[in-house]
Design a protein around this nucleic acid. Structure first.
Lengths: 249, 249
DNA sequence: GTACGAAGTTGATATGGATCAATTTGGACG
DNA sequence: CGTCCAAATTGATCCATATCAACTTCGTAC
């Protein structure tokens, strides 16, 4: 079966960050063009995960950080009681696993929300490389610090804001992240289920659903299933008024 | 006035991490004895802040991270609306400012909760040093990663746990941090006001107050003002049952 | 010691969102 | 193309905690 699909036989497995469209978002961002190959030397590029597959599992040995190349990832912690807490959503260009660099094992589980391609950075090699490349080290600090801030913003959202404010903030966060990738900031498809949104934002699914319809009735958004259109970004920003305007990721 | 207090005139201002009792908690933890002086070369030791004084202010130029030597620090974010969100409490041996390494300015304000002494690590020198010392770099990654995890734990606490569970978790967190310093884990003085606890945990002050008295009536703690005695640690741990047992900091 | 403002406690009431329950929609698969 | 199960929506009720209000305690200054 199958017509002959051109397979790049003997194609070098060596990564090509040079050609990656995300090089201005990902780790290469910090590196001079001529040093890029040092990063390419350590990265394992292009592993594919289908929807629902785990990139790594909480409590298994920590080996690598992963950059999302395409698709999207959800990270979550499972408590002893078996409860899940979604800790983040990761889009192309973003680095997953930074919260695991303090132990021998992964601190959370990372799951592909759709068919997802990732680049793997073995942590030992990455650390070795950042030791030699001050800019790359600086960028790692930057990313980790950013993640701390994001998490603080989330904590703030959870402790001080209403359901509407939380959801508006999430929509705006996604919007700006799509925009960074030069995709439409007002017309996109949510990679995650309502359930994940609810869990992430500390709400019940029913509440998320109700807020979506309320926003829709107010003409702020148009939503059918996972397809979302932001009709009034200004108004959404106003909803988050009491809250730090810049969103949380 | 004053009998002659022996002042170490001409005492070198150079720090002595060697002699610091916190060297097993602080950055020196990662370093071989014989390399310690490289850290001592860059640290500015022993700056004192009185209760209420700011170690640094949100939005001012980011220059340094600070290790708490004695006393304690509260970090908080001020939103545009002027609302405060407490993002953390820092005790001796802990490093403040890691959330600011992604920008030109401090991401939060750090305030001394009591008379507090800190060691200052100018960020440029620190980055330069971690570039040369793999163990120190690894330790920085470790600390930052830890802070991400802490923040995730806090987010979880805020989104999934009751007032009682949150407060029990905070008390146990403080307890274990006192224990690390070889102080009593059951008998200590809270460095922060009820207000700060409430803000940090996303509760109203009144709720914090009520839970304290409830815990007291149940014989779990004895509290008078800021003096706290944990009478039944087991029971407190049970209160946090549904929640990650290890606390959040 | 006394005065005064800040911090903490206690009580009464209101409410946003959880929970429970029922229904509808949607997507995967035979 | 219908079947089946998961996801999403909608409605009704309940509850933990916020809010409002009054009072007490504490710490500091005079």
């Amino acid at each position: 079966m199958a017509q002959a699909i051109p397979i790049r036989k003997n194609s070098p497995l060596k990564a090509s960050c040079h050609q990656c469209s995300l090089s201005n978002l990902c780790l290469p961002l910090a590196i001079e063009e001529n040093e890029l190959e040092r990063l390419e030397d350590i990265v394992l590029q292009g592993r594919i995960f289908n929807r629902g597959e785990h990139i790594f599992d909480q409590s298994t040995p920590f080996r690598s950080c992963f950059a999302v190349k395409s698709g999207s990832i959800k990270t979550s912690i499972i408590t002893e009681g078996g409860e899940e807490q979604v800790t983040g959503f990761f889009m192309p260009g973003e680095l997953v696993g930074l919260d695991s660099m303090s132990g021998e094992t992964y601190a959370c589980t990372a799951k592909a929300l759709e068919r997802t391609s990732v680049c793997e950075f073995p942590i030992e090699k990455l650390e070795e490389l950042t030791g030699k490349m001050p800019e790359l080290q600086h960028h790692m600090y930057h990313l980790m610090s950013q993640e701390i801030q994001n998490s603080h913003q989330l904590a703030m959202l959870l402790s001080k804001n209403t359901a509407e404010e939380r959801i508006a903030a999430l929509l705006l966060s996604l919007s700006s992240r799509f925009q960074r990738r030069r995709l439409s900031p007002t017309n996109f498809s949510l990679p995650m289920a309502r359930n994940d949104i609810a869990n992430f934002l500390g709400l019940a699914v029913e509440t998320v659903s109700r807020v979506f319809t309320r926003f829709q009735n107010q003409g702020l958004i148009r939503a059918r299933g996972r397809e979302v259109e932001l009709l009034d970004v200004e108004a959404l920003q106003t909803v988050t008024r009491e809250f730090s305007r810049q969103g949380f990721q």
